[in-house]
Amino acid sequence: MSWWLPLQGSTFAPQIDGLFIAILIITGLAFVIVEAGLIWFVIKYRGRPGRKGHYTHGSAKAEVIWTAIPAVTVVALGLVSNHYWKEIKGRDSIPADAYPIGIHAKQFEWQVTYPGPDGQLGTADDFTVRNQLHVPVGRNIVVVLTSEDVVHSFWVPVLRVKQDAVPGMTIRAWFQATVPGEYELGCAELCGMGHYRMRARVFIHTPAEFTAWMQQQIQGGATS
């Protein structure tokens, strides 16, 4: 059992995990200060008969300090996060050369449409595979998410990519996988009684493997 984050399988993963760890360190520090302070106060100032508390209504200086420090910290965190956010989800962040894959979510399956040899979605050579996402490493991929019925959420833990698929909307999300292997894709938004089994396999191929798989699909005819 891993007690830590999953394998880093995309270019986003190191960035996101790095930010996660940075926040963990900052909040961990705050956590230790507060909890240690509480325990220390509980022991040191435990009630003793005949004693009175220190009569004070507070200190403006202390208030300023503990308002300013968290404020500066969270605003800084916000700025750093926003930098990555724009890179990951910004509408204009999707690379122009990204290889498109259509994913149509419906209760309770993922219909994955590949553009075929011409590299364009919406053309005659497209083919659709159920519950299998095949992508090559080292290439920018953009998934074009749509939904048939209810809100689903495309979630591949190793890629750190999550994006809701919303009926009536076409949403793009891009990533670049880095580690070949077989992984899993799950639905992260409650979508009905089969939500728990709305699972697909994710194959991250080397470029050669991917080309071979693509050839095989095209020759074997589109399967679904």
Partner: peptide, 14 residues
């Protein structure tokens, strides 16, 4: 704070 940071929210949301 983890979830407020949008990029980190992506893996831990839902």
């Amino acid at each position: 704070v983890f979830m407020a940071a949008t990029p980190v929210d992506m893996p831990i949301h839902d």
